[in-house]
Amino acid sequence: MTVRDVIRILDAKVICGDESLFDVEVSDACGSDMMSDVLAFVKNQAVLLTGLVNVQVIRTADMMDMVCIVFVRGKMPDEDMIAVAKRKDMVLLATPHRMYTACGLLWQNGLKGEHKDA
């Protein structure tokens, strides 16, 4: 799956991120509002889904080398957050779906990471 697929599957609006980043392959994702939980498991997740909106979400994704953050339920980051994300070459997306649905849609479409056989 690519970032472009994530955008399509989640009916997401692109908040920021260069088109060139849309072809990046993503193999795993993580959905959480608690950043320490995100930081606890390194397994090359490339996508972070969250309902939390503050700059620490961007920093957490940066520390984890994630390329794409999806804000669920249409939440919108502010200008400062977008500026930090741009500096880190990250794609920020907003989906109208709730966390549960957004994660389910990505899973159903094959974004299963190391859990392929589960």
């Binding site: 950043m35 320490s36 939980d37 606890a40 503050n54 620490q56 957490t60």
Partner: peptide
């Protein structure tokens, strides 16, 4: 702090890990 996404009591364990 929890509303900001931290304070789950996982910080020091993560640092150790």
């Amino acid at each position: 702090v929890r509303n900001l996404g931290f304070g789950a009591g996982m910080g020091l364990p993560n640092m150790k890990k």
